[in-house]
């Protein structure tokens, strides 16, 4: 089974027991959103998504070894 690493930030870490990242198995072609749903993260909690450090859409299919970065609304500066 292909595996991806999901890096969670800020309030989203509560969905992984406070851990900064989790490694999960995915089925071939599984999307970013499906992967986050599998972790119990509702779609409305994520605002910024990356796959391999590039901005990603929720329906982007994933491949073995991908790195997901998921954030709620973030700002500052």
């Amino acid at each position: 089974m292909p595996r991806v690493t999901v890096h969670l930030y800020a309030s989203l870490r509560s969905y992984a027991g406070g851990a900064p990242s989790v490694e999960v198995e995915i089925r071939p072609g599984q999307t970013v959103e499906e992967t986050l749903h599998a972790l119990g993260i509702p779609s409305d909690q994520t605002r910024i998504l990356f796959v391999n450090n590039r901005a990603a859409a929720t329906n982007q299919p994933l491949q073995d070894g991908d790195r997901i970065g998921a954030f709620p609304a973030i700002g500052g500066g």
Partner: peptide, 20 residues
Amino acid sequence: LTSQTLPKYGTNALANVINE
């Protein structure tokens, strides 16, 4: 952002997202 992330994590919540 103005009601949750900024109060809880401050401006430095940006560090991880800008790094990502």
